[in-house]
Design a protein around this nucleic acid. Structure first.
Length: 547
RNA sequence: GCUCACGUAGCUCAGUGGAUAGAGCGCUUGCCUCCGGAGCAAGAAGUCGCAGGUUCGACUCCUGCCGUGAGUACCA
């Protein structure tokens, strides 16, 4: 819970105790949690508590009487300006206007870190996302997981976690063999050989291009080379392309973890042996199975196939054990809905190993479709992230990927994304940032800056409304992290931009006839700009100073 | 069949067990001699899929049903 709410809860508890001491409330245990919520109407203040309704039973009084008794004993608090009691028993708290204005100076002094939280306490967190095998260009679906994972990592950092961004990939396995052979065929074709690409191979043009590149580089020296010799070329090229796509999206991983290393270090087989020792492995039909019955689950997954090759689950369990062994306090996977059945097995595997699977968390996302894709001329046009970014730009892609609850299907509205107008929510928010920047430039032209501004002059309803909206960022961040719901950022960014536009409309900032007020308002503009840039930064969307 | 999501304004979607359910788009109506009108203000628009239950209080939690989507491999 953030400081603001802690303070309000604290004074509410103190008031209850004081009312009891004064005899206006009977003796009862003061509840440890006091409900606090944002009221829907401005007239009900900034925060409300329904504590009196909850206490009605234990106090044996009407909620309204309890609320009045509590309100009468509320101690003074610098941030509390006034309070009211409304039926059926709400106590409404309104911030003090002077205190609100002081937060402008506080934001300027602390900078973007003003909005940060400390709930991570310097703990180590790891977020794994994208994790596509390097077999081709990234799809739009991977893009959503990538944006969600990266944004969640940003949010954790703002909460005080030390975050590692990780990409897990498999560079052995059947799919990579097919990739290598696809390249081999393309290479032979590039040299004029009459070689056909099998139907189950990768058909994309990108491999034909790569085949030509390899031919240009090594000539005909690989005519007789084995399939495996083509793998390094294919893998390197695919990763280069994937990393370039991710970089365009403002995504950068700290660690690229190779599944194969778990085999080389023998971790996979050691994991199997440990599970076996603990009695979780049995053999049936020549395969080795993971017995999850003791955890109350029914479907036992296969760990090792009857041909002796592990399924992906075994290395996945070994990988997550590896993560925990690296000392992460929190491990989050951003996964597509197609992994919903697998992740519980991984958690159980880690638990079976005797480790704390409570540290493992997951952020699932539903799939992405492109609105209009099925229409005639556009069919199949926007299948890769790069193509989508070519069309609408990285900022729009990130913003749109974040707009919906991750649990909901996302229908990417291409027409709206292409709209360079007020209809496009990205431009609305970015325009606010540009305007916040431009008004400060404009003021400077007539010799006005925020230096020496007196925030006590900020008394207009719209000014204080903007400050209030800025103060919501921290609690919103807390909620979005807790619920693993990055989409809240998008809605907040829109609200903050709107609060600014209203203020801008009502309050002239750069006014040569009112230099003192101008300086105070310039402080507010910069505080708002810092806040807006903070949200955009969390979303990984650019904050332009002009458009 | 089973598992997991999602059903909220004409459309796209927000909504932390609290009060008279919100925003954008679209529609209607105002606002630039003035810092970026890519903006602001106001209005119309709702059986929160249906039916029960828990609770002082349910869009929110539980159960059932209906609808939509995804997953149900010795693929990843």
């Amino acid at each position: 819970m953030i400081l603001l709410q802690k303070e309000l809860v604290l004074i509410t508890k103190q008031a209850i105790a004081a009312a009891q001491a004064a005899g206006t409330l009977p003796e009862f245990d003061i509840p440890t949690t006091i409900p606090l919520n944002r009221p829907k109407k401005a007239e009900w203040g900034d925060f409300s508590t329904a504590a009196a309704m909850q206490l009605a039973k234990v106090a044996r009084r009407k909620p309204l009487d309890i609320a009045n008794a509590i309100a009468q004993h509320l101690p003074n608090s610098p941030l509390l300006g006034s309070h009211t009691v409304t039926p059926p028993g709400f106590i409404n708290y309104t911030f003090d206007n002077k205190w609100l204005a002081t937060q402008v100076d506080a934001i300027l002094q602390t900078g973007p870190a003003y909005f940060d939280l400390t709930l991570g306490q310097g703990q180590k967190a790891q977020v794994e996302f994208v994790s596509a095998n390097p077999t081709g260009p990234l799809s739009i679906g991977r893009g959503r997981g990538g944006v969600l994972g990266d944004t969640y990592a940003n949010m954790l950092e703002a909460c005080g976690y030390e975050v590692t961004r990780e990409y897990y990939f498999n560079n052995a396995g059947k799919q990579m063999d097919i990739l290598a052979n696809s390249l081999r065929v393309r290479y032979l074709q590039a040299l004029g050989q009459d070689e056909a690409l099998p139907d189950d191979h990768y058909q994309g043009e990108y491999l034909a291009d790569l085949g030509k590149d390899v031919a240009a580089e090594v000539g005909d020296s690989m005519l007789e080379s084995a399939v495996g010799d083509f793998l390094p070329y294919a893998e390197a090229a695919m990763f280069k392309s994937i990393k370039a796509t991710l970089a365009r999206m403002n995504i950068h991983h700290d660690v690229f973890f190779n599944e194969n290393s778990l085999f080389e270090s023998n971790a996979v087989w050691e994991t199997l042996a440990t599970l076996d020792e603990k009695g979780f492995v049995y053999e049936k039909d020549g395969a080795r199975w993971f017995d999850v019955s003791s955890f109350g689950h029914e479907k036992d997954p296969v760990l090792v196939r009857s041909n002796g090759v592990p399924t992906y689950r075994l290395p996945d369990i070994a990988y997550h054990a590896n993560k925990l062994n690296r000392g992460f306090d929190l491990v989050v996977n951003a996964l597509g809905a197609d992994h919903k059945d697998e992740f519980p097995d991984v958690k159980l595997g880690v638990r079976a190993l005797g480790m704390d699977d409570g540290k493992l968390d997951v952020l699932f996302n539903q799939f992405v479709t492109v609105k209009g894709e099925k229409m005639s001329t556009r069919r199949g046009r926007f299948t890769t992230l790069d193509e989508l970014m070519d069309e609408v730009g990285a900022d729009v892609v990130r913003y749109f990927m974040l707009m919906r609850d991750a649990n909901s299907h996302l229908d990417f509205d291409l027409d709206l994304a292409l709209e360079q107008s007020d209809k496009n929510p990205v431009f609305y928010v970015q325009y606010a940032h540009a305007r916040l920047s431009s008004v400060q430039r404009k003021a400077a032209e007539i010799g006005l800056t925020r230096e020496g501004g007196d925030i006590r002059l900020l008394v207009h309803e719209s000014e204080l409304g903007l400050v209030r909206k800025l103060l919501e960022l921290s609690e919103l961040l807390e909620m979005a992290v807790r619920d693993k719901a990055p989409h809240h950022l998008v809605w907040y960014a829109r609200d903050l931009a709107a609060a600014f536009h209203t203020c801008y409309r009502d309050c002239r900032v750069a006014d040569a006839d009112n230099p003192d007020l101008s300086r105070a308002r310039l402080k507010l503009m910069e505080a708002a700009r810092i806040g807006l840039a903070k949200v955009l930064g969390l979303m990984g969307v650019g904050a332009p100073t002009e458009m």
